[in-house]
């Protein structure tokens, strides 16, 4: 039976640490790589033209639902039984605007840009109105894009 010397012990300790490090790196980069390659709702559509749909029951009156169209955030607002679909990217510096149901306005939290329900600028720094999307009601399903 062989005894382990201090040198051998240090040797195998360092080797084990290197092995663990390599394994950890391999596991973490495979995880990141798989996440990178795995198609998701955000990535499968890609940057081209795109559509989104969801049942009308998910959108109560006066509320807004966020969807992704071509990977970009859009908001569907249901107000007075009408549907409005707007891009949520503020035309000023690209922050995500939020829907304020009590004022019936879209307000950008960054610099206070104010838009109305059709996307027109009511105040603040935005240079252009919010782009709108085509939105239809097909049976009980809301179809955007």
């Amino acid at each position: 039976m062989e005894e382990i010397t201090r040198k051998d012990f240090l040797h195998s300790t360092v080797n084990t640490l290197i092995g663990l490090w390599v394994t950890a790196t391999a596991v973490l980069s495979s995880y990141a790589g798989l996440r990178y390659l795995w198609p998701t709702e955000k990535t499968a559509g890609g940057p081209g033209g795109n559509k989104a749909s969801f049942p009308l029951t998910e959108l109560p009156e006066g509320d807004m639902k966020k969807v992704l169209i071509g990977g970009k955030p859009a908001g569907i607002i249901r107000l007075n039984k009408d549907l409005y679909a707007l891009s949520l990217i503020c035309t000023h510096l690209g922050c995500i605007v939020s829907w304020h149901p009590e004022e019936k306005r879209l307000i950008c939290p960054c610099h206070g840009g104010v838009y109305d329900i059709n996307g027109a600028v009511l105040g603040g720094p935005p240079p252009r109105p919010l782009p709108s999307y085509e939105v239809r009601l097909r049976g009980d399903t809301v179809v955007v894009g």
Binding site: R35, Y36, W38, T40, T43, P47, G48, G71
Partner: peptide, 15 residues
Amino acid sequence: QAYDSIVHITNNVPF
């Protein structure tokens, strides 16, 4: 689509 796809990679694709 080149620029859009670069933005897509940077902002939407995990990692």
